[in-house]
Amino acid sequence: MCGRYTVTVTMEELMLHFMLGNSFQYSPRYNIAPGQWIPAIIGSEAADQRRIGELRWGLVPHWSKEEKGGAQPINLRAETVAEKPSFQQLLTRKRCLIPADGFYEWKKSGNVKQPVRFIMKDQSLFGMAALYDTWIQPDGGKLHTCTIITTEPNPLVAEVHNRMPVILPREAESLWLDRSVTEAKKLIPLLQTFPEEQMRAYEVDRKVGNSRYDEADCIEPLQALW
């Protein structure tokens, strides 16, 4: 599961890293939670036409009968995306990247749940594979939502949780965002576990558990990185 994450860089850094063709009103986020509007990158057939905007985290697919009537999954398992025709349709036509520089999972120790932040060793940005869709509201308005794809954890994450987000290597981002690619067989192989040797983790304050708390001290380490 991926239920909380961070993106703490500037808009300029996002534009440079992901080669974006636009910017939007954005502020660094230290404790992003489901149900919130989050930055998302939509691709095109040309890499220099990538665009960033906002999607609400928690998928309401176009086939839903009502906005709040379904599960609104914040995550989809890579295995489910590969197997279910309804989600394969989104895989082939409605892909996006969620920019991040860390994500949180909770380690159980007795009755205590200790939040742990996972980042790249070089503290760089990365893109999480996601799907999006548009649901037409009764008044004709459009609701744009998304879900982050998860996969089996690497050994570092497995110490804390049994799933992790699909983090795409830089070389895979262009293929994932290329809207001319509509064959599932070309996309499913991208949904792999990210190597542990490129990541590190550290414990953070339990205030991260409060989804309304979104301050810079959320990412301050309690203990040394491992």
Results as ranks from 00 to 15, higher is better:
19 M>W: 14
109 S>G: 07
1 M>F: 09
141 G>A: 15
120 M>F: 06
135 W>D: 05
179 R>K: 10
51 R>S: 14
218 C>M: 13
199 M>W: 03
141 G>R: 15
26 Y>M: 05
61 P>E: 12
169 P>M: 01
113 K>R: 15
57 W>A: 04
100 A>G: 07
41 I>S: 00
36 Q>W: 06
34 P>G: 07
166 V>C: 01
102 G>A: 12
42 I>P: 04
145 T>K: 07
70 G>Y: 05
111 N>P: 08
131 L>A: 01
186 K>Y: 02
30 Y>I: 06
6 T>Q: 10
12 E>G: 09
180 S>N: 07
214 D>I: 03
17 H>I: 06
224 A>G: 15
137 Q>V: 05
133 D>P: 04
62 H>F: 09
131 L>W: 01
139 D>W: 07
24 F>V: 09
49 Q>M: 12
76 L>Q: 00
47 A>N: 02
189 P>E: 07
31 N>W: 07
215 E>I: 12
153 P>C: 02
28 P>W: 00
79 E>K: 03
113 K>I: 12
4 R>M: 09
167 I>S: 08
215 E>C: 12
186 K>S: 00
11 M>I: 01
119 I>N: 04
40 A>L: 07
167 I>K: 08
68 K>Q: 13
102 G>N: 10
176 W>P: 07
80 T>I: 02
130 A>M: 10
118 F>Q: 11
82 A>T: 03
149 I>W: 02
190 L>V: 02
147 T>I: 08
46 A>K: 08
47 A>F: 03
203 E>A: 15
50 R>E: 09
140 G>H: 11
168 L>V: 03
131 L>K: 00
165 P>C: 07
143 L>T: 04
95 R>H: 11
175 L>N: 01
163 R>D: 05
150 T>S: 11
141 G>K: 15
95 R>E: 10
135 W>H: 04
123 Q>D: 14
162 N>D: 15
40 A>I: 01
93 R>K: 10
198 Q>L: 12
161 H>E: 10
212 R>N: 11
67 E>P: 01
82 A>L: 00
104 Y>S: 03
136 I>Y: 04
179 R>Q: 03
104 Y>R: 03
211 S>M: 14
110 G>S: 06
146 C>W: 05
82 A>G: 00
22 N>L: 13
71 A>R: 13
197 E>W: 10
99 P>K: 13
196 E>W: 01
142 K>A: 12
107 K>H: 09
225 L>F: 13
35 G>E: 09
190 L>G: 05
17 H>T: 14
17 H>P: 07
158 A>V: 10
23 S>H: 11
78 A>R: 00
37 W>I: 08
19 M>F: 13
106 W>S: 05
93 R>C: 05
213 Y>M: 06
157 V>Y: 03
122 D>F: 05
172 A>E: 12
218 C>D: 03
88 Q>R: 15
66 E>F: 05
131 L>R: 02
51 R>D: 11
164 M>D: 06
101 D>K: 02
3 G>V: 07
128 M>F: 02
1 M>W: 01
199 M>Q: 10
137 Q>N: 14
45 E>C: 00
148 I>T: 08
103 F>N: 09
139 D>K: 01
53 G>I: 02
125 L>K: 07
1 M>E: 06
27 S>Q: 14
8 T>S: 14
205 D>S: 15
5 Y>S: 12
175 L>D: 05
